[in-house]
Design a binder for these strands. Structure first.
Length: 495
RNA sequence: GCCGCUCUAGCUCAACUGGUCAGAGCAGGGGCCUCUUAAGCCCAAGGUUCUGGGUUCGAGUCCCAGGGGCGGCACCA
């Protein structure tokens, strides 16, 4: 188990202590020999992948005079008396080093071979290809760049213990190359999202994370306290309301990519802090934004290094109304059962495994979607046109009474995005807040608080606008085939 | 919050129904080896079996409580 749970007065003489003691002895030996185990820098390093690329066509047994300087972590050693092979890894890859006592001299050879797995080492050497065809560097000079004082995970089996992988992600990254690749891909995906939006004329903005009033989504917030102001603040649950005020201000196309915080349970799909990009585009509606999302995801997915992609996200995606989607799976037309009693009867008549007690009509519709439909939506799909009760910020549907112009996008059975034709009628917005206030009064802790500053902004006039919220963590999940959000977060929330 | 599963050496894993069951590989230590690549060979070492109780002649194994992790439910995106 992790060390933080060990008693501070734990008895000595555990094997781990011996391993650490041995490494510390080596550290002191280096110092005694005049070698600085933690130097300040090592200039002129080339990525290992670049060295590989430069000698991709080298034949087995071929030697070169091409000298390269690389640096990285020592991950394996095969010692053979007067010579040794060492494997060095950097972020771009790994390369074999060949050390020979007759080239380095006995003392330096012994020092190199005496290094521990996990030590950071810099090397100068000439590229050659072994008889078995492995590109290698013949070590001509080397430097200890940082001494490692703890044993690394198993060089072959890696690190498998899930708890250790998440709590000590650095060890996961050291031991598991696919994890390293995943987070590089995540970064490239985020960069692809920004590149797409920047290219379409969107302005990236930053709005408050600490808010006097939270809003823009249905969730319990985290609460904190500002001491100088002696005032409670909330961590944002969405960027929606501030971004729409920027639309009022005339920025026309804005986006924000950052963390939201929701005080809800944890699950393979939920982390209390998560990354969301929201964008708002003046003079567009939810249909335009569906096309935007398709384009954006397809463009961002192109950035992934991992091939082939785990899912096909090439546009166009399937579009289905919420009513059709539920009817397809359950045979129930929710719009034919517009009150709670009728819908309950239909659900019970269909023999569905769904708890109906204490659920309102809109909640039952949402349950049908979430439980019966969502898991089946593997191919990218837009589900359109939701009941107004579930969507306090969406504009009424232009032709369907009781519905709003809203869609959610699903990929791999996971909801990745949510969008509306944004409500810009301040009086209607005020009525929606009143309805939410009634829900809050009735004990719904996730109901929207009334945001007067937002309504007042709308009174100045917000252009007709389409807006989208896209969950970055979930997008990474579905594009890389990871089943848990914890796999795509570097440091997921742990108890 | 509730339910189920799980926790053995630094790492990866063994130990049939309670009975030489505290074991292996890797890593680490000592030795041999100048083209190996999960290098190889020889030697020695390494344990609070998550923690605390209990049952039993005997507990890694069964029971209870606690802790962590994973999954499900509830809640949510």
């Amino acid at each position: 188990m992790t060390e933080r749970r060990e008693a501070p007065d734990a008895p000595a003489a555990r094997p781990l202590d011996d391993l650490i003691a041995t490494r510390r002895e080596k550290l002191e030996r280096l110092r005694a020999e005049g070698v600085e185990p933690f130097p300040h820098a090592f200039a002129g390093v080339e990525p290992i992948a670049a060295v590989r690329a430069a000698h991709a066509d080298l034949a087995a047994g071929e030697e070169t005079e091409a000298r390269h300087r690389v640096a990285g972590r020592l991950i394996a050693r095969r010692d053979a008396g007067g010579a040794a092979f060492l494997d060095l890894a950097d972020r771009s890859g790994r390369i074999q080093l060949h050390a020979r006592a007759d080239l380095l001299g006995d003392e330096r050879f012994a020092r190199l071979v005496g290094l521990d797995l996990g030590d950071l080492v810099g090397v100068d050497g000439a590229a050659f290809c072994t008889r078995r065809g492995e590109l290698s560097l013949r070590v001509e000079d080397f430097a200890v760049l940082a001494k490692s004082l703890r044993p690394p995970p198993d060089k072959h089996h890696g690190l498998a213990d899930v708890e250790t992988r998440y709590r000590q992600r650095e060890l996961d990254l050291i031991a598991n190359e696919d994890v390293r690749a995943l987070f590089v891909d995540r970064a490239r995906l985020v960069s692809g999202v920004r590149a797409y939006l920047d290219g379409e004329g969107f302005v990236e903005v930053e709005t408050p994370v600490l808010q006097p009033l939270y809003g823009g989504a249905l969730s319990r917030p985290f609460r904190t306290h500002h001491h100088a102001l002696d005032r409670d603040l909330f961590l944002r649950i969405a960027t929606e309301l501030y971004l729409k005020r920027l639309l009022v201000g005339g920025l026309e196309r804005v986006y924000e990519l950052g963390k939201d915080f929701r005080n809800e349970g944890l699950s393979p799909k939920h982390n209390p802090e998560f990354t969301m990009v929201e964008w708002y585009e003046a003079y567009s509606d939810y249909s335009d934004q569906a096309a935007r999302l398709e384009e954006l995801v397809a463009a961002a997915a192109e950035r992934l290094l991992e091939r082939p992609p785990r899912v096909t996200v090439t546009p166009p995606w399937r579009r289905v109304t919420l009513r059709e989607a539920i009817a397809e799976r359950t045979g129930i037309d929710v719009l034919e059962h517009r009150d709670r009693g009728a819908l309950v009867a239909a659900i019970e008549g269909a023999g569905l495994d769904l708890a109906v007690s204490e659920r309102t009509w809109p909640q039952l519709v949402d349950d049908l979607l979430t439980k019966m439909v969502e898991p089946t939506l593997q191919e990218p799909t837009f589900v359109l046109d939701y009941p107004v009760e579930l969507s306090p910020f969406a504009k009424a549907h232009r032709s369907q009474r009781g519905l709003v112009e809203r869609w959610e996008a699903f990929v791999g059975g996971v909801e990745i995005a949510n969008a509306f034709t944004e409500l810009n009628d301040p009086d209607e917005q005020r009525r929606r807040f009143e309805a939410q206030r009634a829900e809050a009064g009735a004990g719904d802790e996730e109901a929207q608080p009334y945001d007067e500053a937002f309504v007042r902004a709308l009174e100045h006039g917000m252009p007709p606008t389409g807006g989208v919220g896209l969950g970055i963590d979930r997008l990474v999940m579905v594009l890389t085939g990871r089943r848990s959000i914890r796999e795509v977060l570097l440091f997921p929330a742990m108890r």
